[in-house]
């Protein structure tokens, strides 16, 4: 699946608590590195490093607006993670369907009580 390496990179990037905090903060809108550092318990150089990782994973993008340098959630970045999670869930449901199919006694369909008379 071509989506997988991208999703893995994003999930790896989100494995760090500071980077998760950055993503949560960016959910409120684009911000500059300085403002981000003010909100986080780490310094500006560390924030820059984390942003680079998030950018490399396709989760964050950089935009210049006049003299301001802003970081924002990349459109579709988290959708990759969402899709990956859905795929795993499809797998689980598929496995459950296989299991249910093999466990059902053949030739004896489950009898369902008709509760209307009780």
């Amino acid at each position: 699946m071509s989506n997988q390496p991208v999703a893995h990179a994003a999930l790896d990037a989100l494995g760090d608590p500071t980077r998760r905090q950055i993503v949560e903060r960016l959910r409120q809108g684009p911000v500059a590195v300085g403002a981000l550092a003010d909100d986080l318990p780490v310094g500006r150089p560390a924030v820059s490093k984390h942003l680079k990782v998030l950018q490399g994973a396709g989760l964050v993008e950089h935009r210049s607006v006049g003299t301001r340098n802003l970081y924002a959630l990349a459109p579709g970045g988290l959708a990759v993670v969402h899709r990956w999670l859905t795929e795993q869930w499809d797998g689980v449901l598929g496995a459950f369907a296989d299991h249910a199919g093999s466990a059902a006694p053949s030739g004896h369909p489950a009898h369902v009580e008709d509760g209307s008379t009780s």
Partner: peptide
């Protein structure tokens, strides 16, 4: 509505 470095993106 402010232009950004990407002409297709607006702040």
């Amino acid at each position: 509505f402010t232009p950004t470095d990407d002409p297709a993106v607006t702040l």
